[in-house]
Each structure stands twice: as structure tokens, then as C-alpha cells.
Design a protein around this nucleic acid. Structure first.
Lengths: 119, 119
DNA sequence: GTAGAACTTCGAGCGCGCTCGAAGTCAAGA
DNA sequence: TCTTGACTTCGAGCGCGCTCGAAGTTCTAC
């Protein structure tokens, strides 16, 4: 089994080592397997979690919500409540996308107007 | 000329009065016209600025950048540099939208997978 | 065996973007 | 005129999400 060190994993997902450690400490990813010497050894699963969490953060999902999600999944909680939360997040993302479309158009018009007005 | 008070303007664009005052103080909007008593009286132009700035903030444009933009426009600076910055921001928005699309799909797959796996 | 790099934990600090409270001023209604 | 309440400035405080430094440990190369 190939494993990665903290810095390798951080590079892989585009985070700093500090951020990666913070993610584990803050419960944004499940505990990462360790070597005999106590160092993190990211296996495929740990890396997948890290990637997924990095994605959720990039989407603007709050740390507290990701923490709840991770806790729910790792505890094997049978309630579907957290999935509902995720579903809602996806809905919110769609809204945000639509809003983004409108905003892009608005900013473009502004820029174009200023350009045609001779700066 | 119809003008709005701070709280009316704030309601209109979905900000708090504190945030509106902060925006002016921080140079995110040009100085707002005042009544004889020193109170803000938002005319159409001031309101348009407020709406636009609120939009830019919602898009994630940093306060410092908006400040530069506002300073550039209000000073009538002839350089097109700030427009370039805005153009770059629009490009960044497009990238972000594309990323958002990918992420939405990714999260959806995850949610669907957990659902079909019986929670 | 030892130097040095890379890792570890812990806790403090920081930048952003507001947010709020204090203390005072202004405006509209009774 | 007086009350009520929304407005004003100013500066401090705060929550989030890292970020960094200190002090110590472990791994790797020589």
C-alpha cells in the first residue's frame, strides 16, 4: 500500500501542511492513519477524504457543516439527516450558480459600457 | 428626487445598516450625499453604486480590489488598468462557474452513492 | 552515530469583513 | 415642547479559517 506524507498529501490537493493538520484536528477529515513513529500516512481512503473536504471547502461549505457530515459518516449514523443537509447544499450551489450567471452578465455589461464610453 | 435613508437602502440591497456605513467608510462606494442634518440620502446613483458593490462582494471580489475600482472610477483616472482588473475578475468568475459545475456533479454523485447504498 | 530535514503537537496570532455598543444628534408625531 | 426612535461617528470586538512559531521527535543519508 502506497501512502503519502502530510506534505505530499497537501501538495496533491493544493493545501498547506498546516491546513491539512488543521483539517484533521478540526474534524473535517477522519483521523489519518499513522506510522509507528506517529506520522501521518495517507492511504487511498484518507486521501479521498482530504480531496473531498478540500472540494467542499472550495465550494464554500462551512467548516462546522463539514464536521457534522464527517462525524455522521464515520459514526455510521443511520439517520439520513446529514444527507438531507448535503442535498440542501447542492441546491444552494445551483442557486449560487444561477446567481453567478446573472452577476457575470452584469459585470460584463458594466465593463463593456465603460470601454465604449472611452474609458 | 426621491432619496432613501441608510436603513431603506440597506433593506433594498440586502445589507445591514452597519455594513452600508462600513462600505462607505471603507471606500467601497463613493461618498453618499447627505441631508442638511448630516444623514445619508441615497439618490439613484448612490443606490446603484451600493447595489453594484453588494453584487461584487457577493461574487467574492475582495474589499481592497473594489476600493481600487471605486477610487479609479470616481477619480476619473484615464488608465484602463482597473478595467483590466475587472476583466480578469470576470474571467476568474467564469473559471469559478466551471469549477462549481464540476463540484456540483461530484457532490451529487457522492450523495446518490450513499443513498443507493442504503444510507 | 550523527547532522539535518521533515515531521509532530500545541497554542497563539492574524487578516478579512463585518458587527456591535456607546454616546451623541436629528426629525417627526402628540 | 417633549418623546421616541432612527440616525450619526468612532472604535473596539468577533467569528471564521487558517497560519505560524516554538519546542520537541523521527526519519534519512552520510
Amino acid at each position: 500500500m502506497v501512502t503519502l506524507t502530510t506534505s505530499e498529501a497537501a501538495d496533491r490537493v493544493g493545501l498547506t501542511v498546516h491546513a491539512v493538520r488543521y483539517y484533521e484536528r478540526a474534524g473535517l477529515i477522519p483521523p489519518v492513519p499513522r506510522t509507528a513513529g506517529g506520522r501521518r500516512a495517507f492511504d487511498d481512503e484518507a486521501l479521498a477524504w482530504l480531496e473531498y473536504t478540500a472540494c467542499l471547502r472550495a465550494l464554500g461549505m462551512p467548516v462546522a457543516l463539514i464536521r457534522r457530515y464527517v462525524a455522521s459518516v464515520t459514526s455510521g449514523s443511520p439517520t439520513g439527516a446529514i444527507d438531507l443537509v448535503m442535498q440542501e447544499h447542492v441546491e444552494a450551489l445551483r442557486d449560487r450558480r444561477a446567481q453567478l450567471d446573472r452577476y457575470i452578465e452584469m459585470v460584463e455589461r458594466k465593463v463593456a459600457a465603460r470601454r465604449s464610453a472611452g474609458r
